[in-house]
């Protein structure tokens, strides 16, 4: 790790040692290195573009389409993809592109909420377990083991059945299933950081226990947990879409990616575009999120 990075650092950030191009300033060199990093990873560039587009669609769907996702022209039902309707029209004559774009908002909101639930609850659990140790650690981590023992989809189905239908509830249900993963990562990091010299020094200097925990342990343990959140993001998009596909999401006609695929499956024989395009959108988002998370994970190490 040191070797590779060391070489690039020497070439890029130390121009005074390189005689030939005197015009290259340290800033330009850093820029070139960064550009080179991206140029060598076209997949990552594409992933960032995809996630960026999806995020933009979630916040400003009007940028992509001016059509109404809820109202269609019944006479134009089940038209294939065309210049006018890039994704075709559905069984009620609604523009599928508009529905997919507007579906991004709900699907991503649910995903963000689910990741947030997992991140906050899981981190708190892991932090407490790691910091307090002993009985508390045992109890909390056995709870995490129980959560992990139940298949995630089954657990989220059970929770959403108990909570009732709706996008927010689906998000909470999916979030709860990822709590255990976050708790484990956080606990491991807390245990690692707790043994470091600077934490011992802080204790020796007389800092209070909770202030050491919040000011020294948490910030230094957070990195891997945030990377884990990025990795989870892709999986959660899939889980939210799965529950929405099963009909636990928003009531019709509100579009969600999962429900769009589900609505189209009865027309698979005659109208392939109804399931294909929302399905590809989900797949692209999940793959892109995973690629970005992987890159971030590499940086973190």
């Amino acid at each position: 790790m040191n070797g590779v990075n060391g070489v690039t650092r020497v070439a890029g950030t130390a121009p005074h040692q390189a005689p030939s191009p005197p015009a290259v300033t340290p800033e330009a060199g850093r820029l070139a290195a960064r550009l080179g990093y991206w140029l060598r990873r076209p997949g990552l560039v594409l992933s960032v573009l995809v996630v960026g587009a999806v995020l933009t669609a979630a916040i400003l769907p009007e940028l992509f389409t001016s059509r109404d996702p809820l109202t269609g022209v019944p006479a134009e039902k089940l038209r294939g993809p065309s210049a006018e309707h890039p994704f075709g029209t559905d069984q009620l004559g609604r523009d599928l592109f508009a529905r997919t774009v507007h579906g991004a908002a709900l699907s991503l909101r649910a995903t963000s909420l689910a990741v947030a639930v997992g991140l906050v609850a899981g981190s708190a659990m892991g932090l407490l377990a790691g910091a307090l140790g002993g009985r508390v650690d045992d109890v909390l981590m056995r709870c995490a083991d129980v959560l992990l023992a139940i298949p995630a989809l089954l657990l989220s189905l059970a929770i959403v059945t108990a909570l009732g239908f709706g996008t927010t509830r689906v998000a909470i249900a999916v979030g709860v299933t990822s709590v255990a993963g976050f708790a484990r990562v956080m606990r491991a990091e807390v245990l690692r950081v707790r043994g470091t010299v600077y934490v011992e020094a802080a204790h020796a200097a007389g800092a209070r226990r909770h202030s050491v925990l919040l000011r020294h342990v948490l910030p230094n343990a957070a990195g891997p947990v945030l990377v884990f959140a990025a990795v989870e993001f892709g999986a959660v998009v899939l889980a939210v879409s799965a529950l929405s596909f099963l009909g636990y999401g928003a009531e019709p006609p509100t579009p969600e990616w999962g429900s769009l695929v589900s609505e189209g499956r009865d027309y698979l024989a005659g109208a392939w575009w109804l399931t294909t395009f929302p399905g590809l959108t989900i797949a692209a988002t999940v793959l892109a999120a995973n690629r970005i998370a992987r890159a971030w994970e590499g940086e973190e190490r």
Partner: peptide, 10 residues
């Protein structure tokens, strides 16, 4: 049912 209701909704 679902499609009929969505159309009536519209």
């Amino acid at each position: 049912n679902e499609n009929a209701l969505q159309l009536i909704q519209q």
